[in-house]
Nucleic acid binder design. Structure first.
Lengths: 169, 169
DNA sequence: ATGACAGGTTCACGGCCAGGAAACAGTCAG
DNA sequence: CTGACTGTTTCCTGGCCGTGAACCTGTCAT
């Protein structure tokens, strides 16, 4: 996702929209003071500003986006899954599974719920789900997504930046 | 909590410590470019800067701290424990122990009360609790939580920020 | 002090079971 | 036919949980 540049206070209403949509933005403050931020996805500079400074602020926003924003992976009706500029095509069953995971992104989806999504009219054998999760995992590994197991509870989808463990300091 | 002013790059190592302890900081950039931020609790200005601008940035940091501070440790019904943007899945027994600790967050929970929470119908051997506390400790260490012992009284849950207040100075 | 002791920490082990993984076979489209 | 998709069987890894035991460290009585 891109960082949007907004002139302030000239484009005040535009900023409102970006806040509502949780889109990261850099305010170019032309006069007066910047507004109190409503979220973590906003920063500001006084213009004119050095290019390097603006770039640094934009990088900072992208970093925060990784930490907070729900940079949603997107699955279209043809089973093409896009994330962070890359994509893979998913076969029907796996596409339905992924769709269920995306619906509750970040939250745990039970095996039962997954099975219902994957096979709306009757699930096959018990292990079919395991195997499909395995294959789905391998497929999406290359585009920065991962399916984590929550033992005896279900699975949850995780994006690359939103790792589960801290770096061992 | 106060926002700490750090000269950059002169006080580089000081910044490291603040990052580790998750203390909000404003970098006073004297030369070159600011570092890539490691979290949401950092901002920067080029010095010299107008007082009003610095105040605006400090207010922004406090705002973000508020957003994060509200983010208390949270344990969902599937045993997923979330804190400061990270998460771990807890197995059943440890999830119940953590739940008891969270109920009285910050206060001491006796070993007996913990045992009752962990094993509602009859506790196993005495040592089971110790072992589970140990394993729980290791698990939550990675997401910025810690269980502290109060000898012959019980245990209490502590966040990284909390620890700072306790040991600070 | 010294030694016994209680409270805590940590490790190693075994049983149990959920989930992971490989290998194979059937179906269908190009 | 070939290759992609799907489902099944089968085996095995690894997580969870309790136990026993070693060890460490304050505390207390002598």
């Amino acid at each position: 996702m891109e960082v949007v540049l907004v002139r302030w206070p000239a484009e005040r209403t535009r900023r409102e929209l970006l806040v509502r949509d949780e889109i990261p933005r850099l305010l170019l403050v032309e006069d007066g003071l910047p507004p109190a931020p409503d979220d973590c996805l906003e920063d500001w500079v006084r213009v004119p500003a050095a290019d390097s400074d603006m770039a640094a602020r934009i990088d900072g926003l992208k970093m925060r986006l990784g930490l907070h924003g729900r940079e949603a992976a997107d699955l279209d009706e043809n089973g093409v899954l896009r994330f962070s500029g890359r994509w893979v095509a998913l076969p029907p069953v796996e596409a339905r599974l992924m769709s269920a995971l995306l619906d509750r992104q970040g939250a745990v989806v039970s095996r039962e719920a997954l099975a219902r999504s994957g096979w709306p009219d009757g699930a096959p054998g018990r292990n079919a789900l395991d195997v499909h999760v395995l294959r789905l995992r391998r497929r999406i590994d290359g585009i920065g997504l991962a399916i984590r197991t929550v033992r005896s509870r279900g699975y949850l989808l995780e994006t690359e930046v939103h790792r589960q463990q801290a770096s061992g300091a």
